[in-house]
Design a protein around this nucleic acid. Structure first.
Length: 199
DNA sequence: AAAAGGATCACCT
DNA sequence: GGTGATCCTTTTT
């Protein structure tokens, strides 16, 4: 069942954990690609020094303050797009970063996208890590701000037979600069899953 | 106009 | 475990 806006109105830490195992669906001219969500991170509020909103409300972070259920996509390292879903109430800047998926449909389309990208290599677990995930699902600045509740092309659904998987909570990746926030246990992944980006 | 900073990746040991 | 490559956006002068 497709998720409604109420689902994302909750705290991003809650959503990041709950959404593991759900299906991310992306249709485009190239076809349909479906990824099972394996790994996420929560970024929450102006007090979270790892969150973009910690530097205040700017043109870039404006989206985080708006309605939940929209994509927040930005370029990092000048090369990679990071794909997030905005969570929480209006004026509460929160998001869930999608770090890794297991491609369960449209694998040839996803491989083709990885192959034509200059910065990544196709290997056995090719949609692991937020940069590669965005390439495999063709997320870029064109989808920034897209509403995944009303869209029929890009959305998330709870599988019919969903059971809550065993989950590992740990600290977030790449936020070494975030002082006391860097060790917050806001990274979640499905235990023992081969598509987790980093141990 | 210039500088600095990355929510990464691939490859190495 | 660690390092270097990469180049766009944001911030500062």
């Amino acid at each position: 069942m497709k998720l409604d806006r109420k689902y994302f109105l909750r705290n991003s830490v809650v959503v990041a954990e709950d959404i593991l195992g759900y299906f991310l669906i992306c249709k485009s001219d190239e076809g349909k690609v479906v990824g099972k969500i394996i790994e996420t991170e929560a970024y929450m509020g102006e007090d979270d020094l790892a969150c973009h909103a910690s530097r205040g409300r700017t043109k870039r972070t404006e989206l985080l303050y708006h309605d939940a259920g929209h994509l927040y996509i930005y370029l990092n390292y000048g090369i990679f797009y990071m794909t997030n879903v905005v969570c929480g109430k209006i004026n509460s800047p929160e998001a869930v970063l999608l770090r890794s998926v297991e491609i369960i449909e449209g694998i040839e389309i996803a491989k083709k996208r990885i192959n034509r990208n200059k910065y990544v290599k196709l290997n056995h677990s090719f949609a692991t890590g937020p940069g590669k995930l965005s390439i495999a699902l063709d997320f870029n600045k064109n989808q920034n701000g897209l509403d995944i509740i009303t869209s029929n092309e890009i959305y998330i659904e709870k599988p019919d037979n969903h059971r809550r998987p065993p989950i590992v909570k740990t600290s977030r990746i790449g936020v070494y600069y975030a002082k006391h926030c860097k060790n917050y246990p806001w990274r979640f992944y499905i235990k023992d899953n081969p598509f987790v980006s980093k141990k």
